[in-house]
């Protein structure tokens, strides 16, 4: 890491953890916390999608894993009385298990075929949530308790959310923390041997296989990590809204996850984060346009695509090709 990178990272961390809370408490726009928390969580899901893009697969199924993760957490908290903090990794792991089982056959597909299957998968998950008894059907699971206390050996690490004066801030910090950790992990993966292997898959799978890369294992691994991210994002979302329905994550959400990646730029680790911020925040800001909101939003999206078809971040590397 160069000094410039470190500086950039430092600025980013200070902005996320200090400047944003200070700015919000000064301006009094408490509603921004919810928006920014959503941005942070959605960008975790988008990070997962980005990883599948990195192995050359178009993933429009992240909504499915967000829904599964959300339901795992909700069911465990409500029916089995498990602490939320334990359900968070469990939700991720459950999603990984599901994704490995589904991924083994469908990751053999490529291009639009894979994209379409994952899109269908989102719909299957929604219908399963409607049909399965444990999910309580269309009524969903409601009044889920807020996350409780997390303590190790009597030492309180995270206090009970229900007793907090400002759970919004706490949720924001939790989401931001998770986001930073996910992107750090993602950055580490991309810049490791595993990342190089993944890039070889993106460029030419047959060639990679012929050199001796274990293609099948790698793509299932990447897909599993991707789904883990989706599950975590879904679980925290459920904790915030304290409810989950089969329609909490639908096809539109899956498509949005993909769009965030595209807009930010597929060649850059921080691409999905920026894309999520632009699209989600932009959508909320556009609510002033009332009935023209969707029209303006779609027009801006199309215009952005025409102007920067390789993602917004590609504006910054005109001179040297970083990838």
């Amino acid at each position: 890491m160069t000094t410039k990178n470190l500086l950039g990272l430092g600025t980013f961390l200070i902005t996320v953890f200090v400047l944003v809370p200070v700015g919000i408490s000064v301006s009094g726009r408490w509603d921004f916390y919810y928006t920014l928390t959503s941005v942070a969580l959605l960008s975790i899901g988008a990070a997962g999608v980005w990883l599948t893009f990195y192995i050359g697969r178009i993933n429009i199924g992240q909504g499915a894993y967000a829904l599964i993760g959300g339901y795992v957490s909700a069911v465990l908290v409500v029916k089995a009385d498990v602490s939320f903090w334990l359900t968070l990794p469990l939700a991720g792991l459950f999603c990984t298990t599901v994704s490995v089982l589904i991924g083994l056959p469908i990751l053999r597909l490529r291009g639009v075929y894979f994209a379409m299957v994952t899109l269908v998968l989102t719909e299957v998950t929604r219908l399963s949530a409607l049909a399965l008894p444990v999910t309580n059907g269309a009524k969903g699971i409601t009044s889920i308790p807020l996350p409780g206390e997390l303590s190790i050996l009597g030492l309180t690490i995270i206090p009970d959310f229900a007793t907090m004066q400002n759970p919004k801030l706490a949720f924001y910090l939790l989401a931001a923390f998770l986001m930073v950790v996910s992107y750090a992990v993602l950055w580490r993966i991309v810049n490791s041997r595993l990342g190089h292997l993944c890039r070889s898959l993106q460029q030419n799978e047959e060639l990679a296989a012929s050199i001796g890369v274990n293609v099948a294992y790698l793509r299932v691994l990447a897909y599993g990590i991707s789904s883990f991210y989706g599950g975590i994002a879904g679980a925290v979302f459920v904790a915030i809204s304290q409810s989950i329905y089969p329609s909490s994550f639908v096809v539109t959400d899956s498509v949005n996850f993909m769009l965030y990646c595209f807009l930010g730029g597929l060649g850059y680790v921080s691409g999905p984060m920026l894309g999520t911020l632009l699209l989600y925040f932009g959508w909320n800001l556009l609510s002033v346009a009332k009935e023209y909101q969707l029209l303006v939003y779609a027009s801006v999206m199309i215009a952005l695509m025409l102007a920067v078809p390789n993602g917004v971040l590609s504006l910054f590397d005109r001179k040297g090709d970083r990838k």
Binding site: F53, I58, A115, V255, M258, L259, F262, L263, L266, G267, E291, Y292, L294, L295, Y297, A298, S299, M301, I302, M305, L306, P309, N310
Partner: peptide
């Protein structure tokens, strides 16, 4: 977009944008 883009998947974003746009126009 097809001419300028590095990856052909970019057209999916465009197609989704068009879908949103048509939805808005219909509305």
């Amino acid at each position: 977009v097809i001419r300028k883009s590095k990856r052909e998947e970019s057209t999916m974003l465009l197609a989704a944008g068009v879908a949103f746009f048509l939805d808005a126009v219909i509305l």
